[in-house]
Nucleic acid binder design. Structure first.
Lengths: 303, 303
DNA sequence: GTCACCCATAAATTCACCTTATAGGATGAG
DNA sequence: CTCATCCTATAAGGTGAATTTATGGGTGAC
């Protein structure tokens, strides 16, 4: 393989114009340059591609055949370049997101807006627990992760784009319902249903307890926010969950948020990605979109 | 357009092996050469095609897309090269022949044999009068011409491959039928039907007459051998035609060949082509075939 | 930490390509 | 036929790109 694109390009031009000299003019080259390139091409091909008939030149059979292929290759190359330009212009592309399961309550809105703006970007969204998020980052199988606290074991960039208030919920008839400024001591006597070890919410709660020098109250572990909310409704105890997961339950008055001192625990949603991963234009677009449209995402709450 | 095949080739290899170093090894290059080519490619594309993740590299989205196109282009190029090789090996190709109309009586056999040997060569055959042959040669619209005397106005190569005896024919009941060693004087008194001016046969007859210092006898002109043979059968006179056109008429005893002194006029069939035209492998093959198989073409005659 | 491995960068060399200059062949006008 | 013109081929020289050697930096395994 020693045929070059330059050779084919010059060859096509010469074949079209039926003249070395004119081809040279059109390609902003000198005539000898064209002569030499064609000569080399002929050497590669093993046969002449043009007949030199006096002043004029004519394609040989081999030349005619080669011209077909040269045109095909040219078209392929143009398609490739077009593709690259589209990708560069963020018209097209794929975006792979991974998110913590609790982010499920606002990401659909986020993605809906993004999709409207960039209709040709194909999005795939994976939901994972903390271990899964970590693995995705480690193996670089995702473009971006939506999560709370990023791990510190990797060189990651993390940008806060939204608050994530953790609140204590209770069933509507609870004895503390409606009470203002409930003290931590008061709630500490209650039963709690909290997330399993490894969950970000659980970690946040533990951190909160230790900073306020409290023992963890009696508690049941469950591995999903949905399950916790159901359990709280059933009267098994109080729950600590992200406020963002409560929209429906609050509207339907199935759950209430207790007004406890030092609550809500303010955590944050972050956009996390590897520092060493190059942003694709699509990733960049999503990144920018999220930081810009974050405010529109929050439904109005009554604390 | 500044992407080169070299870049794409290296890119494909790197993408396949997931390593600059190994790609370099496989391509018999050094690692920096690979680094730089990829770097340039990325500049052309406007985006990185690989993520450098620690020791490993991974295709970016743009890289994945580009890889598709790079592979397509590679395939196209291989097809082109395959085509060229086939042409070089004469497996395939087109052959355009042009022949004098009187050559019609043996070329079919010639072509049949050639086609059997090279079944993938597509042959097109044009029949033309002398003016047409000349034009075809002048405009270089044919690969080879089968004719008698080539013109001298062009730089042509002409190779004799077969004799072309011109004989005098008469209807079976003619008074000279069966007579041995008829003198020229005797036949000179007959009426003749001969080809029109411009025809090769006519030219040959004129030359013959002038070398033997004879006047042209009374004659009717006709512009095809077929017409002449019909006319001779109808008793309009004697004819001078190529013996090769007579196979059927002789077999069916519709015409006879007179045994005249200095006859047959021995002319020749030639393979004619422009000296400045490059032989395609196909043309070369035909040329060789004709010179080799010429003897098989001649049906056995009884003069 | 040390070693091995891999990619990036720098400088020097090699090589491909282009340009200028010139020759040769063909064509068409006088 | 001869000259002028147009086109392509060839030669020599210069420029820039690609490659190599040498080296640096970062990562992961031990």
């Amino acid at each position: 393989m020693h045929i070059t694109l330059k050779q084919l390009q010059i060859f096509r031009t010469v074949a079209e114009l039926q003249s070395y000299t004119q081809a040279a003019r059109q390609l902003y080259l000198t005539q000898p340059a064209v002569s030499m390139q064609i000569k080399q091409l002929e050497e590669e091909v093993g046969m002449p591609v043009f007949d030199r008939i006096g002043k004029k030149i004519q394609l040989t059979d081999a030349g005619r055949e080669l011209l077909q292929h040269a045109r095909n290759i040219h078209i392929q190359l143009e398609e490739a370049q077009q593709s690259m330009e589209e990708l560069r212009g963020i018209k097209r592309g794929r975006l792979h997101l991974t998110m913590a399961s609790t982010a499920n309550y606002f990401t659909p809105r986020l993605l809906a807006g993004f999709c409207r703006e960039y209709p040709d970007i194909q999005i795939s969204l994976s939901v994972a627990n903390r271990a899964g998020l970590l693995q995705a980052l480690e193996q670089n199988t995702t473009d971006m992760v939506i999560m709370g606290e990023p791990p510190t074991t990797m060189p990651l960039a993390a940008e806060i784009f939204m608050e994530n208030p953790l609140v204590i919920v209770a069933p509507p008839g609870h004895r503390l319902a409606g009470k203002k400024n409930i003290t931590l001591k008061e709630v500490a006597r209650e039963h709690f249903i909290i997330r399993e070890i490894g969950s970000g919410t659980r970690a946040a709660v533990e951190r909160f307890l230790s900073t306020h020098d409290l023992e963890r109250p009696q508690s049941i572990e469950m591995n999903s926010s949905e399950a916790i909310k159901q359990a709280v409704q059933a009267g098994l105890g109080l729950g600590v969950v992200s406020m963002h997961t409560l929209e429906m339950e609050l509207t339907l008055k199935r759950l209430i948020v207790l007004n406890v001192e030092d609550f809500p625990i303010m955590r944050h949603w972050r956009l996390v990605y590897r520092k060493d991963r190059h942003f694709s234009p699509v990733s960049q677009a999503f990144h920018d979109y999220v930081l810009e449209h974050t405010s529109e995402l929050l439904p109005s709450f009554t604390t």
